Amino acid sequence: MSAPKTILFVGIGNMGWPMAARLIGAGFAVAVNDAVAGRATDFVAKVGGVEAGDLAAAADQADVIITMLPTSTHVASAVAGLRDGLRKDHIVIDMSSGAPAATQAIAADLAPLGVTVLDAPVSGGVPRAVTGELAIMAGGEPAALDRVEPVLRAMGTTIHRIGGLGSGQAMKALNNLVSAGGFLIGIEALLIGQQFGIDPALMTDVLNASTGMNNSTQKKFKQFVLSRKFDSGFGLDLMVKDLSIALEVARATGVAAPFSNLCRELSASAQGLLGPGQDHTALAKLSEALAGIALKA
Rank of each mutant, 00 (worst) to 15 (best):
A3Y: 00
K5C: 09
I12L: 06
N14W: 01
N14D: 07
N14G: 02
G16F: 11
M19F: 10
M19G: 05
A20M: 05
R22Y: 02
L23W: 12
I24S: 06
A35M: 06
T41Y: 00
V44G: 02
A45D: 12
V47P: 04
G53K: 07
D54P: 13
D63H: 01
V64K: 13
P70T: 01
P70A: 03
H74F: 09
V75E: 08
A78Q: 08
G81S: 06
R83W: 01
L86W: 12
K88Q: 13
V92D: 04
S97D: 03
S97N: 05
G98E: 06
A107K: 13
A108N: 07
A108T: 14
V115M: 05
T116R: 11
L118Q: 10
S123Y: 11
V126H: 07
E133F: 02
E133V: 01
L134D: 06
E141C: 08
A144S: 15
A144W: 11
D146T: 04
V148A: 04
V151I: 11
V151A: 02
R153E: 15
A154C: 08
A154N: 09
M155T: 14
M155W: 06
T158P: 00
I162F: 08
Q169R: 10
A170K: 07
M171Y: 01
N176A: 00
V178K: 14
S179A: 15
G186K: 06
E188A: 09
A189Q: 07
L191Y: 05
I198K: 07
L202T: 15
L202E: 10
M203F: 15
T204M: 02
D205P: 00
V206R: 00
L207E: 08
A209E: 10
S210Y: 00
S210E: 00
S216M: 09
F221C: 03
S232Q: 14
F234G: 01
M239T: 02
M239D: 03
S244Y: 00
S244L: 06
S244H: 12
I245W: 05
T253L: 12
A256V: 13
P258K: 00
S260F: 10
L262R: 09
R264S: 06
S269I: 03
G272R: 14
G275E: 15
Q278F: 05
A282T: 11
K285Y: 03
K285F: 03
L286G: 02
A291Q: 12
I293V: 15
A297K: 15
A297H: 14
